[in-house]
Amino acid sequence: MTTMTPDRHDHAQVMSAPARVYGIMAEFETAEQITNAAKAVNAAGYRFWDCHAPFPVHGLDKAMGIKRTILPVLVFFAGLTGATIGFVLQAFTNAGSVSIWALVWVSGYPFLISGKPLMSVPAWIPIIFELTILFSALSTVGIMLFMNNLPRLSHPLLSNNRFRRATDDRFFVVIEARDPKFLRSKTEAFLKTLGSRHIEVVEDR
């Protein structure tokens, strides 16, 4: 799981030889404490670290120095793709006379009804709209999960009993062992200064 350089590896394995260290977690009890702690960890220059909370604490992402996600921009292009597919689909099937290969060879069928124009774009708007929404919504979720590296079936933190309260009423700061600034003793001492009531090493089993 963790990709550590050899010297970091040595530091991490001082105490428990067989298990690799994933990181150190510090537990907090209020939204205020975690926000203050996050500001301090960010200011200390750590890079591979995270806060865990049962709900999105307002302003915590800013305190952690998280940049705003690019997700909406990507979703905009997904929406454009949906609109284009909606238009091309209808133009091809109802007004086109060409053949294309889509699993089988298929050709369009020019529907001529009551002398209406073949390219009757106003009548196509509802489906263009629906496909825009469909593509945007599905890609919103798909891209969000992909960027979050989800779904995943296991994670070192999820094996930790104490961490179960991260989805209930506790807040955690976790500094990962792969962080360049991670030194077990120093990081632990640093976390202690933040006012945590409980500090624990998380192993990667």
């Binding site: 996050a38 995270d50 806060c51 865990h52 909370a53 049962p54 709900f55 999105p56 604490v57 915590l60 992402d61 952690m64 998280i66 705003r68 996600t69 997700l71 909406p72 979703v75 945007s136 919504a137 919103t140 979720v141 891209i143 969000m144 999960l145 960027m147 979050n148 989800l150 779904p151 995943r152 079936l153 296991s154 994670h155 933190l157 999820l158 961490f163 991260a166 989805t167």
Partner: peptide
């Protein structure tokens, strides 16, 4: 739950995604 662990980095994108939805 697909491995959700309340990560704030996840929450950040999650909130944006929820707003978009």
């Amino acid at each position: 739950a697909i491995g959700w662990r309340g990560s704030m980095r996840h929450w950040h994108r999650y909130e944006v995604a929820y707003l978009l939805l």
